[in-house]
Each structure stands twice: as C-alpha cells, then as structure tokens.
Design a protein around this nucleic acid. Sequence first.
DNA 1: TGCTCATTTGCGTAATTGTGCAATTGTATT
DNA 2: AATACAATTGCACAATTACGCAAATGAGCA
Lengths: 133, 133
Amino acid sequence: MSKSKTTITCPHDSESAITLDSCCTEALENHLPSDFFKALGDPNRIALVARLAVCGRPAKVSEIACCLPIDMSVVSRHLRQLKDAGILECEKQGKEVLYSVQYQSITKMLRGLADAIDECCPEQRRCVGTKKK
Amino acid sequence: MSKSKTTITCPHDSESAITLDSCCTEALENHLPSDFFKALGDPNRIALVARLAVCGRPAKVSEIACCLPIDMSVVSRHLRQLKDAGILECEKQGKEVLYSVQYQSITKMLRGLADAIDECCPEQRRCVGTKKK
DNA sequence: TGCTCATTTGCGTAATTGTGCAATTGTATT
DNA sequence: AATACAATTGCACAATTACGCAAATGAGCA
C-alpha cells in the first residue's frame, strides 16, 4: 500500500468530501471492468457459462444452444460477448466453433478483485478518517 | 463433490450432448446471481462502488453524487440497486442516508464463486469425457 | 406549525439491449 | 462446381434501462 493520497472536495459541501486514496482507486478500478460484469448480468448468459463450465470440454454452438429456449443466433451473440469479456474462448474446428470456459483467467480475476477490495477495507488500513477540514 | 450426474441430450444431436453434472450445476448457479453482476455492469455504478470502497467510511448520498456528472436522483436509484444486490448497505441518520460497502459479503461471494469454478475445472476432477454414446 | 434540507419517487424520453427471422459467410463433402 | 451444414450477421421490433426534471416524502429546526 502506498501513501499517496488525494482529496476530492465536493463543490457545495467541502467539509464532508469523500477522501479518495488515488492509488487505491486505480487499483480497484483496474479490477472492476464493467464489461466483465455486464457480460454476466444476463440470466441466459449465466446459464450458458454455468452449463459450459460443468461440461468440462469445448462445446459447439449448436449443442450449447439446444439447452436454452432461444434462437441459436442469439446464443452465438451471447457467446461472442462472453468471449470479448474474457470469460470464454473459442477455436474453429472445421465447420464448427468450439467454446470453452477460461477457468484460470476468471478465477484469477475474481480473486484479484476480492484482494483489491480487502485492501480497501477500513479494518485493514491505517488511513481512515483522513478528513479535510 | 457428489456423484449424482445427469446427461441432457440434444434433441437433434444426441451424440454430442453436453454432459451436465447436476449437482455441480446447482453449486455453480448458486454462486452466479445475475442481479449481482447486473448491478456491477454499469460504469457509473462501478464508479460509485469504487469511490465508496476507497472512502472507507459511510458516506451520504449527496457527497457520493457530487463525484459523478449525473443527477442525484439517478445516483439514489443506483445506490438502491447496489444495496438490493448485497453490495452496499445503508443506515438512516437524521435527514441523511449513509451508504457503505459490504466488504465481507462481496469478497466472500467472489471467492466462493472462484472456488465453485475451480470445482468445475476439468484438470481438477475425474469426471471428464463422460459422454453418452 | 411552518420552513429548510436530504433523499426518494413519479413520469416521460432517449438509449441500450435481447430477441427472432432471414440472408450471408465459411468449410467440408459429393 | 454444386450441395449441405454450422455459425454469424443484417434488420426490425419489443423490452428494458439510464436519465433528468419536478413533485413528494421525511426529518430536523425556527
């Protein structure tokens, strides 16, 4: 943890300004890519990831699609979004495209975020209540 | 992990059906509440959480709102959504409402999910390639 | 009681997103 | 070359969501 610190004051209420540890903010926001969460924010995409995760092997789009009551074209778009978010990966094999879960990068991401939040937790740092007056 | 297992066959392609370990699916889906991710899927809400996290103390709505170029009523709604998702908590104090980050429940959730994904990771289980033939 | 301030809620609108269908692309097979 | 199949993309539409403004709620204070 560093000691660099910035205080951002509220224009209309400078006394109760939120104290921002800039270094910590960056560390946290690096771990908070909203595209990652947006990708997991849809029930159908959650279902796709869960099924693919327990499947344990690369699966083609058509077999993934048949588990859900939505069109395969929609599944294809969902899979692409999950891939762009770093949750899935895919490889072409002949006519087919095989999707699989990026286990390591997901768990690394989740644990990294958890650690970053722990770093910010008041109980774990000395820099609490540094209020500008 | 248990041994109960279910195979869901594709209607039009039963040979390449995705093998589903039902117990594992449930375990995973329990860790995948889409509302949690949906709440973190918006850049403004991410910013709110990050700022509140590094703030390290309960903060009132107006001071949280002044960090973002959006109306306070919108911030209020975002905060409520984050609270409903279990990411923030709030307490009334006179006229004001103080929001703070639920550090423990978030990190517990993230690490629980990471563990659940690890449980599904092919390298860590024996039940790979259980394909119906 | 009347007033002020902080927050929430109602409502209308613009933007985004999820979806299905049809057409297209790309790859193998005949 | 023609055909068949898997996956993607274009397009239109419905549903959801983010947003700002104004009004309402609620809690302290004169």
